[in-house]
Design a protein around this nucleic acid. Structure first.
Lengths: 148, 148
DNA sequence: TGGTTTAGCGAGAATATATATCTTTTATGA
DNA sequence: TCATAAAAGATATATATTCTCGCTAAACCA
């Protein structure tokens, strides 16, 4: 799979962003690694092979930009580094904290049911949802086995 | 509310941890700030008033330890710093990524329903769940108003 | 209670991730 | 093709967290 250049140019132009070879290569890296969750460093390393001239700062800037445009999703695994994956049209659900991407405000949402939460939350809290994350923390079988 | 010392001593002793005044004060800080999500720096600042002799490294070490013992929960808001809150007996739900706290392995769980996911996931993926997080990302009404 | 053991402490250095700055380069639109 | 404003590369800086080391004190036992 490769990039739909017409769509990309359109979405870039809307925000006055330039279509540079660096940005195309960074986005292509995600297309070539669909199932992975790549950190900035990961992307930078992968690019060293074919494009050793792309700087780490450019990678960081591009990731931020591509997320803003909706090409990528940012994921936090709590290991201190942000990871990104291709944004697709899937879905999950749920609730707990409402985190504003713009000002960082954290709004509580003291409910506990699951149903049609996304639209419900959106209406009730007057919060425009662009993404959600649902994560479980715990111990995998390997670690449980190893640690006695 | 204050600390149940008998329970605390029991849970500490199980893992050979010592009950130090620093750790008690750090835990008390969370009890005194129930509704907040405190970062290491936040805790450190709050402690400056009454216990200016507690070092930042001690705060970090204690937070990690208290989380391991189940007194605290770690939360990631994606702003680069970990936050903690008192672990209570509440609940939410959901799924997406399984993140091993021990080795950092990220296991996919390609389902999309919600039902009794926690026990289902636990059985199916052989993963011992100790915590889960459900978050929505988006824009609050304030920011939407301000940014045009 | 006093002594021994070992975990924990404070301070500061070290590391890691991410962002900012500055100069040069280049995509874009007339 | 040219002007211009965005973006690139290189590097410095900021921020969060972990590590190291010598000293202190909690825990346990006699």
């Amino acid at each position: 799979m490769s990039i739909d250049m017409a769509d990309l140019r359109r979405r870039f132009r809307e925000k006055q962003y330039k279509v540079t070879p660096q940005r195309q290569k960074i986005l292509q890296t995600f297309i070539d690694n669909q199932e992975k969750h790549l950190s900035a460093e990961d992307v930078y390393s992968l690019l060293q092979v074919d494009s050793p001239d792309i700087g780490l700062a450019t990678v960081y800037r591009s990731l931020e930009m591509l997320e803003k445009l909706g090409f990528l999703h940012r994921i936090e695994f709590g290991d201190g580094k942000s990871r990104y994956e291709l944004a697709t049209g899937d879905s999950s659900h749920a609730h707990h904290h409402l985190i504003c991407l713009s000002c960082g405000a954290v709004l509580e949402f003291g409910d506990d049911l699951m149903e049609t939460l996304e639209s419900f939350v959106s209406r009730t809290a007057d919060f425009e949802i662009t993404d959600h994350q649902v994560k479980f923390y715990g111990y995998c079988s390997e670690c449980r086995k190893r640690d006695e």
